[in-house]
Design a protein around this nucleic acid. Structure first.
Lengths: 252, 252
DNA sequence: ATACTGGCTTGATCCAGATCAATTCTCTAT
DNA sequence: ATAGAGAATTGATCTGGATCAAGCCAGTAT
């Protein structure tokens, strides 16, 4: 076995650790052989540029995707012709889980910056599951997570003030980046203020005013897309007036 | 085979048709043998009185439930001590899907009236799935539906006016009752105005005013909990100014 | 350099719906 | 029957955040 080979394995392992499908092959019971099997159905990584569609509204559902790098927005089209953003997906998040039953995508997913995804063809999951026990269970766990996250978003929209919504959103981005090994306090918001406003159910102007207000209060620095969170506890105080007991994660 | 036996089978079939787990055993590939197998893991129907908990926040997750009769509300507790209702479950709906990954219930479910459920112990699903191909797929479909429904609720809360929210809510209840063979236009709202307001993210007073307003416009009759929808198209017109293209179902 | 374009910020005004307050209706318990 | 408690309705007022409007900034094309 050459040194080169060893380096490759390490690299794969690193990449996998930040992958949303890692939970399928990593911590729970999958050995190297299983990972090799999984690798046979994972299509080659798929790269996208800013603005590219991963899938469009109404397209047939064929696969689920895990974001390896970059970020996405998913959104549906409303009767009045406007969009409604249903979530942002960062490295490690999954896309497409809502389309399993309808077999058609009920929303669109679009890259917010240069991005790459792993694609796992859904029709091969059944055969693969025969070989990898627990695969189905992991998939259901991931879907269960998605259900919970959506319910956090419901609380956010139903109960929280504009201030609390934005603070929650920023803390959530921070947490998700942290759990993937990125910096908790300095990051780039790949989405526009417009997109944030849309997700949080408010007007762009309000988002803009809140960023200014948070900056004046010394909670953060916002230079265009570059955000530096200065006072995590201060932000938490704003959200905690009205957040979910215990689990207030994943609202974006 | 006695007449009595025939009647029993017919009754079971009728009951199953309105059951949320029917989709697991009915239309897609399950024959009588499979149904018998499924029956062995379905615990005896569980009956509840108004106000009884099906499960509480934080309890260990052991099973998913299908509502056979009656209705439930599920809700989480917020930091400030108030509840946030995340949904109402009518006959045929499933409960508990959001707790698979955490293994603890992240919300509570409580009967709104006398109700009964089927309980399917989750730890037996794996073994059962070995015998019934497609069971996993059906479960994932049901979870996928749940994800979609939650996203409809997001749109409702993020984009729609108070008027449109209530109209959407009422039409949704109506549709769900219709699909289970109940009347589309006359029904009993088992939940209080307070609960409706909570789900829709608004104040009780607003709900009350809207019921009065809808009644004056001839859209419906509201006598306490008894609701008669008089003008479905009129209600649709109110929602359609701002609803999801195509699929505007399940917002409660 | 200059102009253009789209995203962002800031100010001024307005309104849908929250909040506060008082009354009425229903149901339950005595 | 009567009292008491919670749910629902209705009215009066207030306000958070939307909307309208105008300027600003950064990146791209000419």
């Amino acid at each position: 076995m050459s040194d080169q080979k060893v380096v490759e394995i390490t690299q794969v392992s690193q990449a996998c650790r930040r992958c949303g499908l890692y939970h399928l092959c990593g911590p729970m019971g999958l050995d190297e052989g299983d990972m090799a099997k999984l690798d046979t159905v994972l299509k080659r990584r798929h790269s996208l540029q800013k603005g590219d569609y991963l899938y469009r509204l109404g397209e047939p559902f064929t696969a689920i995707y895990a974001v390896r790098a970059g970020s996405f927005k998913s959104y549906t089209l409303l009767d009045d012709g406007t969009d409604q953003i249903t979530g942002f997906q960062l490295a490690g998040d999954l896309l497409g889980l809502g389309a399993i039953s309808t077999k058609k995508h009920t929303n669109a997913a679009r890259a917010l910056e240069t991005a790459s995804v792993c694609e796992i063809p859904f029709d091969r999951i059944e055969s693969l599951a025969g070989e990898i026990p627990g695969l189905h269970y992991h998939l259901m766990s991931l879907m269960s997570d998605e259900i919970q996250h959506d319910q956090c978003k419901l609380v956010l929209l139903a109960k929280m003030s504009a201030e609390a919504r934005l603070a929650t959103f920023l803390l959530n981005i921070s947490e998700r980046l942290t759990s993937r090994g990125y910096s908790a306090c300095e990051f780039n918001l790949s989405m526009s203020r417009n997109d944030i406003a849309n997700l949080l159910g408010m007007a762009v102007e309000t988002i803009s005013r809140l960023f200014s207000q948070f900056q004046e209060s010394g909670l953060l620095l916002a230079n265009r897309k570059e955000i530096t969170l200065l006072d995590l506890d201060g932000l938490r105080a704003i959200t905690s007036s009205c957040s979910v007991k215990s689990n207030n994660s994943h609202v974006s």
